[in-house]
Amino acid sequence: MLPVLFGISVAVFTIVHLIPGDPADVLLGQNATPARVKAINHQLGIDRPILIQYINFIKDLFHGSLGTSFDNKEPVAKLILGRLPETGMLLTGGIILSILIALPLSILAASKRGALRDQLVRAIPIIGLGMPQVWIGVMLILLLGLKFPLFPVSGFGDTFPQHLRSIFLPSLTIAILLSPILIRSLRASMLEILDSDYVLTARAKGISQTRITFVHVLRNAIIASVTVLGINVAYLVGSMVIVERVFVIPGTGSLMIDAIAKRDYPIVQGVTLYFALVVVVVNLITDLIHAALDPRVALK
């Protein structure tokens, strides 16, 4: 994990240094005079050697500082923390809904291999994986937001119940995006589990099919979904940025896209770093959950 964290810090540090031209020119725009450019460069520390800049960047990180926004002079870390509830709820909602969609469908498909219901479920990934995130969002807005106005189509609301209602459609978008991936691997692992010796033993002991499915098979299928979710968390987090935009949810993704329009690069840098850290941490958590659920997995 340490080399990965090092790699991430180098990559994020490089992003700012790849920007063509002087950041000061970007900052000052029309008002750039050589003296002011020099002053800004000194203020940003860009006139120092690159290695020193990198060390300072890391020092700041350990102090929990991601720099300050150019636009409103607020600390970037504070801005990100302020948007956490929105992003966190959306991520949780999306994961819960995708499991609620994928798990029953996979059980249904695996319960009778090759039957019509199996073939129908198998068609879901073929269609589903080709659906653009933004398009799923727009279609849900059309159907459940406007034609049948059951849910708000944008914003986040003010109270907790309003939040829940507001994040339903965006969460469903994420779930529709994620469940084809889940279904594909869950169905395969369920079929494998149903073929295994311990299920045969359970049958021989005269345990009912329902009990086998829900006690023996389901437990292992959940382990499989945790792993699949862990592998796809980067894709999930990235898609969330776009879904937030479609539904005008003021989360961390919107923060980043707004910052791009204003060329506020400390925010772009901060959010990029933050999302990469989220992926690393979520991967660690899925490893831990996997180990907790499955005694055969030993953590190294």
């Binding site: 990965v4 990559a11 790849l18 990235g238 940025v241 999302f275 990469a276």
Partner: peptide, 21 residues
């Protein structure tokens, strides 16, 4: 190690950051 690092970056976040650059 480079592969591990790249995997940690959500594609859309990286893409948006690059569009920024």
């Amino acid at each position: 190690r480079v592969v591990d690092t790249v995997i940690a970056f959500p594609f859309y976040v990286l893409a948006i950051a690059l569009v920024f650059i």
